[in-house]
């Protein structure tokens, strides 16, 4: 299988946030990822596309090891996040998940107030009573401001986060990652539950935040992949088929399967 990895960019040598080496993953007997070698550049938006069940989400979930929770998962190979193999025995999962944040398909704020949602991550990572009231107010304001929610929600910080609009909930889910100062943000179809306006809002937000954080986004929406991402990865049946700059991948796909998919002959 021709794995057409990496881009032909002539720019300065890129730093990679995530690198995998011969990553194989099984759910029981079913092999969901086959020899995936990928390098995700730092501080950019990279999108993962492919038909359903091709392993996009599985790959995404490997990077903060949340898929281990489902049981019956075997992983082989190497995943380096920020230069550290995350399957080493000295890696602490809470720290890994603090560094690699995740946004899910359906907005899943915790059933507590907006204010507490934003502080939840910070609270579990710092000793009890560590945060003063003033500090936490400031953190909440900063986080909400950077996702453009502060003006809407500043008077409603005490309402239950699950009662917000979906778009606001999804933005809140991004906002609550920010106080933890993650380096990488994984997004598993973050806009599939949102309408066009909400999608646009989340995309704009990603573009604004892209310089500070590395985004990896799984999407079924190819238009979205073209709009937001700088690089694009096409996967098919657990294998990484093509990884290039987005425009190049969509305009001159090198692998016939990629060509079929991006020209919507299936998928």
């Amino acid at each position: 299988m021709a794995i057409n990895c990496n881009m032909d960019s002539q720019t300065t040598p890129l730093n990679y946030s995530i690198e995998t080496e011969n990553l194989n993953l099984w759910y029981g007997d079913f092999q969901a990822l086959i020899d995936v070698n990928v390098k995700i550049p730092d501080g950019q938006i990279t999108s993962l596309i492919g038909p359903s069940g091709c392993g996009k989400s599985t790959l995404l979930r490997c990077f903060n090891r949340v898929n281990e929770r489902y049981g019956n998962v075997t992983t082989e190979g190497k995943i380096e996040v920020l230069g550290k193999n995350i399957y080493d025995s000295d890696v602490s999962l809470p720290e890994l998940r603090k560094t690699v944040g995740m946004v899910f398909q359906r907005p899943n704020p915790l059933p507590i107030s907006v204010y507490e949602n934003i502080l939840f991550g910070l609270r579990i990572h710092s000793p009890v009573g560590h945060l003063t009231r003033a500090e936490s107010d400031q953190i909440v304001e900063e986080a909400l401001t950077s996702v453009f929610l502060w003006d809407d929600l500043k008077d409603r910080l005490k309402v239950r986060a699950t009662s917000l609009q979906l778009e606001q909930q999804q933005k809140l889910c991004i906002a609550r990652l920010l106080p933890l100062k993650p380096r990488v943000i994984l997004m598993d179809e973050p806009c599939s539950a949102l309408d066009a306006k909400g999608t646009l809002a989340v995309e704009e937000l990603m573009e604004v935040l892209a310089g500070k954080y590395t985004f990896l986004i799984v999407t079924h929406n190819m238009a979205q992949a073209r709009r937001v991402s700088k690089e694009c990865i096409f996967m098919f049946l657990g294998e990484l088929i093509e990884h290039r700059e987005t425009q190049a991948l969509f305009q001159t796909p090198q692998h016939p399967k990629t060509a079929d998919y991006v020209q919507m002959r299936y998928g």
Partner: peptide
């Protein structure tokens, strides 16, 4: 989703 989001934020 409640468990998932808490785990993804690094809760033990």
């Amino acid at each position: 989703p409640i468990r998932e989001s808490a785990y993804a934020l690094g809760a033990s």
